[in-house]
């Protein structure tokens, strides 16, 4: 019993780690540029496909992750130039429409390029197999996801909290005007942040491929969960996103344990209840005056 619970907790943690990386990418773009990117799931899936093919190619396995990060960041940079940049100042409706349309295009392009079947990566030997915890087997790779995911989140936290660049980003989140009067080029800042966001999406996709595999439609599933994570966490709050990634990850994992038939129903109802109780998210940003 103890072992079973521990395994489920680890399952939830590995899922949370993926949600965290994906959610952070979405969240930073949303709180900094006030931009809703419904194409974020495409970055995730692209990252997954890159990892699957890289790991099959025989090249050093660990490079799959930086390669996925860089490739999706590059895709993000191109996309940011055209057409997303022109939509930062537009209403959410237009952003939602544009990015959803792009995600439809990318979904079909990826189905075209990578096929419609479910692809699972060939994991490197050192990450294959299981470890035994309280006599229960647990896939080693998921431990790697937890470790890598939370290490990456820590690195991001250091980046945002401890570096000059992070300070500029945080200042721009709370008041863009002030940052502009300091002579900082917000266009370049936004482009860099969007690249980082896309890269994080791709990186979490690369990590997640070993757990969720890669298939058409996964982009939408991940997007929805990442959106929920961001909204439940509260906009513009790093801690809130961490907390809500854990909440969403645990809610989804344990509702599968307790209500296997109606897992999503239970989890979504819990999320709705949470959002109704705390309409501004778990960690609400300070309210602006009227």
């Amino acid at each position: 019993m103890m072992g079973y619970a521990a395994i489920q907790v680890l399952n939830a943690l590995s899922f949370s780690a993926l949600l965290l990386l994906t959610g952070l990418g979405l969240s930073v773009v949303l709180s900094l540029m006030n931009f809703v990117n419904l194409a974020h799931g495409s970055f995730y899936l692209l990252g997954s496909y890159i990892a699957v093919h890289w790991l099959a190619s025989g090249a050093p396995w660990w490079m799959a992750f930086p390669v996925a990060f860089l490739a999706t960041a590059l895709a993000g940079a191109l996309l940011e130039r055209f057409p997303l940049r022109a939509f930062y100042a537009r209403p959410h409706l237009m952003q939602v429409l544009l990015t959803y349309g792009l995600s439809v295009i990318f979904a079909d392009l990826m189905r075209w390029g990578f096929g419609a079947q479910i692809l699972s990566p060939e994991l490197p030997e050192m990450l294959q197999g299981v470890v035994f915890l309280f006599d229960m087997p647990f896939p080693l790779y998921r431990l790697f996801i937890i470790g890598a995911g939370f290490a990456m989140a820590l690195a991001l936290w250091l980046l945002f909290d401890r570096t000059m660049w992070g300070a500029v980003v945080r200042a721009a989140v709370s008041d863009r005007g002030i940052v502009e009067t300091l002579g900082i080029d917000t266009r370049r800042l936004f482009a860099a942040v969007f690249m980082l966001s896309a890269g994080l999406g791709g990186l979490s996709g690369a990590l997640g491929a070993g757990m969720l595999a890669a298939y058409p439609g996964l982009d939408e599933e991940v997007l929805i969960l990442a959106l929920i994570t961001v909204v439940v966490g509260g906009l513009g709050s790093f801690g809130g996103t961490v907390l809500s990634a854990l909440v969403v990850g645990f809610a989804l994992t344990f509702s599968k344990v307790w209500f296997p038939e109606f897992a999503n129903l239970a989890a979504f109802s819990a999320m709705i209840a949470l959002l109704l109780a705390r309409p501004n998210g778990l960690v609400a940003p300070p309210l602006r005056q009227l």
């Binding site: 949303l30 959410h92 409706l93 939602v96 929920i228 909204v231 129903l265 979504f268 709705i272 959002l275």
Partner: peptide, 16 residues
Amino acid sequence: AGSLFLLILALLFGQI
């Protein structure tokens, strides 16, 4: 809730 929350809540409701 506001616009973005409405979008997500409607999505969740629909999926339920």
